[in-house]
């Protein structure tokens, strides 16, 4: 027993190793703090429960979608349909879910099932996920426009109450963000399934030799991601109280940016659930900050892009220093 205890590293050593492993996502934490400080200096009003709630409300559905993207990217795939999918879910929430709840739930379950099927196609037929999900994005958009050609509809009452919860002592979005991050972290980093999922992204041959079904692993990953994406759509619908096929079309690229900001990469194998959260919050804060300093709205996207590029460049530089 004494021999074993020499090999198992102590808490301090674990912390050092853990810190080194999270370097890729560390810069998004720095960027998040810097932007928050700048915003707070410009507008001290945001340093209140109400201010923070206002600032981070939009980040909650985005975070759910980004964690879904993170799961898919950690097996080395990418989801180019997630924005349209979230849009479709808001439409389903604003139409079917209130008129015919059973049918609405069935539709949402169907979406999850389709994602499982996509995973099978990607795995068995070697179709690049980028193609499969891009194709599906048009299907999602088409279905959404068929259900609800113009933004509108009405969400069921229970869904509205989800975002009506506003405690006075803590900003509600912070609670949501912490809870979502914790769930994603448990799935990706702590669970046995998460280990297999990262192994699939890192070295599929290893996983195969270990006797684990690659198809099953990929299907479960996609299904977990689809569940998160559906939740993202429901939360978004609950915030806007309506459905809109195009309400989340920018989610696709923003979620990818958030994952990359948070330390992820396109080749897969690693998961950064906490870094992804920092990435999402950073992107949300950038939008707020650019609004605060009265940048003309037509320039906001450009400024957002430049800040993202700057953070990524910084990440590359710091990684080189650490190595």
């Amino acid at each position: 027993m004494s021999a074993i205890s020499t090999t198992l590293p102590g808490l301090r050593r674990r912390t050092v190793i853990g810190a080194r492993h999270s370097v890729p996502g560390a810069l998004s934490l720095v960027a998040m703090i810097v932007i928050f400080v700048i915003a707070a200096v410009n507008q001290p009003g945001i340093l209140s429960v109400y201010g923070i709630t206002l600032m981070l409300t939009a980040a909650v559905p985005l975070l759910l979608a980004a964690q879904a993207q993170m799961l898919i990217m950690s097996v080395g795939d990418i989801d180019l349909g997630i924005g349209q999918l979230v849009g479709l879910v808001t439409v389903i929430a604003a139409t079917l879910l209130s008129t015919d709840p059973a049918l609405g739930v069935l539709a949402l379950v169907g979406i999850v099932a389709v994602y499982g099927l996509l995973a099978v196609i990607v795995q068995k037929r070697n179709v690049p996920s980028i193609i499969a999900t891009l194709g599906m994005s048009f299907v999602w958009l088409g279905l959404a426009l068929q259900l609800l050609p113009t933004p509108g509809g009405a969400t069921p009452e229970w869904l509205g109450q989800l975002s009506a919860w506003r405690p006075t002592w803590i900003p509600a979005p912070v609670v949501w963000i912490v809870a979502i991050t914790l769930v994603a972290w448990l799935i990706a980093k702590r669970s046995r399934f998460g280990t297999r999922m990262r192994a699939l992204g890192s070295s599929p041959a290893t996983l195969g030799r270990a006797g684990v079904s690659l198809t099953r692993t990929r299907v479960l990953t996609y299904v977990a991601a689809a569940v998160l994406a559906v939740l993202a759509g429901l939360v978004l619908a609950s915030q806007t109280q309506s459905g809109d096929a195009n309400s989340a079309s920018n989610f696709t690229l923003v979620t990818i940016a958030a994952v990359i900001l948070g330390g992820g990469n396109f080749s897969g194998g690693q998961s950064f659930p906490i870094g992804t959260t920092f990435g999402v919050v950073t992107l949300a804060l950038i939008t707020v900050l650019l609004g605060l300093i009265n940048l003309s709205s037509s320039l906001q996207s450009a400024a957002q892009g430049i800040i993202v590029l700057a953070v990524l460049a910084g990440r590359i530089i710091t990684e080189r220093f650490v190595r």
Binding site: T195, R198, A199, G201, S202, S203, T206, R209, G269, Q270
Partner: peptide, 8 residues
């Protein structure tokens, strides 16, 4: 040819 996943 080592059968280990490098990211794990």
């Amino acid at each position: 040819e080592l059968s280990l996943a490098p990211d794990l």
